Simulated scan of single mutants.
Amino acid sequence: MMSEHAPPLVDQAFQRLRKDVLTGAFAAGVKLKVEELQSAYGFSSSPLREALSRLSQEGLVRADERRGFRVAALTPDDLHDITRMRLMLDVPALREAIEHGDDAWEAAIVAAYYRLEKVESRLPDGPVILDDEWSGLHRDFHSALVAACPSQRQLAWSASLFDQAERYRRFSARFRKAARRKSTEHKKLMDATLRRDGDTACALLTEHIRGTLRNVQSAFDAAAAEAA
């Protein structure tokens, strides 16, 4: 019979492993050995294996042919697939949120934007997506935009895909040569959403998501040039 303490241990192991995979603490393609993870995190093998299985369901970890696990590789094809799915889920979710959102939803968007803008204003020009606080607030802002979408499954899948794209954002930042200019994209996206201008808001979100794809593709090109 499973101990009543097992689910929280699995959740703890999952959250810690997930964060380290997303932030690049484990490099893409690296083998995740349970014995080493036990030493690093202090969990027994059972919750770690369950956490790894859950991460594999998200696509962040791949099952190895010898029944082990590896961090999923970063590839242009995978990013294109993530982008395609984000456009299929996030854009309709935003449109539905605009249709169903109330005053509390609007207030939450404004608050999330304010926190993001305040943190970004204090950061130097450069790859701010390597900053964990900024990354968390960036996620919160995008989650707030679509929070009024009535489909909880759609929101869950959207959140998972946003996090999968985070690994690519961080990869892109490592290869960015020029200083990062403060963008008004989030402000424009918020304003159109609060105006209940669904067409403009969805067009802006589409361009925002495709912009990530372009930035990461440039990073792949830069990485290939360095390797050559």
Rank of each mutant, 00 (worst) to 15 (best):
A156S: 13
R210S: 11
S44V: 12
F26A: 05
P150W: 10
I209Y: 04
A40P: 01
D191S: 07
K188L: 04
K182T: 05
L89N: 00
L189N: 03
L194K: 00
A51Y: 03
M1T: 13
L204R: 05
S143I: 07
L155R: 15
V71A: 05
R54N: 08
F171T: 08
Q38D: 03
E185Y: 01
A40G: 01
R196S: 11
D131P: 03
A228E: 09
H100G: 06
S218P: 02
F26W: 06
A201G: 01
H80I: 11
V110F: 12
W157P: 08
D140S: 14
L205E: 03
Q15G: 11
A27Q: 11
A25Y: 14
E120I: 11
A40H: 11
G42F: 05
Q12V: 00
L79I: 13
P127S: 08
E36H: 08
Y113N: 12
A97P: 03
D64V: 05
K19R: 13
L213Y: 00
E65R: 06
R54T: 06
R115S: 10
D131Q: 10
M1I: 15
T23K: 01
A107Y: 02
L161D: 02
V10H: 00
A63M: 09
S183W: 05
S56G: 12
C202P: 00
F162I: 07
L130C: 05
E117A: 14
E185P: 00
S121N: 09
R66C: 10
E65I: 15
D197F: 02
L79W: 00
L87I: 06
V61T: 12
G198M: 10
K31M: 07
A178Q: 12
A6D: 01
D90Y: 11
T206V: 08
L213C: 11
A73C: 05
A165R: 02
M2R: 11
A93R: 02
T206A: 08
D81V: 10
W157Q: 14
W105H: 14
D199G: 04
G211M: 03
A97K: 09
R195Y: 06
I109L: 00
G59V: 10
L37Q: 07
G24S: 02
R49P: 01
L22G: 04
M88F: 09
S158M: 04
D102H: 07
E36Q: 13
L130N: 00
G29S: 12
S44Q: 14
A6K: 09
S158L: 06
R84C: 07
A104D: 00
L87G: 07
A25S: 04
S3P: 05
I82Y: 04
L17S: 10
R196K: 12
A147C: 01
A228F: 08
A165Y: 01
A223T: 03
K182G: 13
L74R: 04
R180E: 08
L204Q: 05
L32K: 01
L32N: 01
K118I: 13
L48K: 02
A108H: 09
R49M: 13
H186A: 11
R214I: 03
L37E: 10
D140P: 11
L79H: 00
E58V: 12
A222L: 06
L137N: 04
A97F: 14
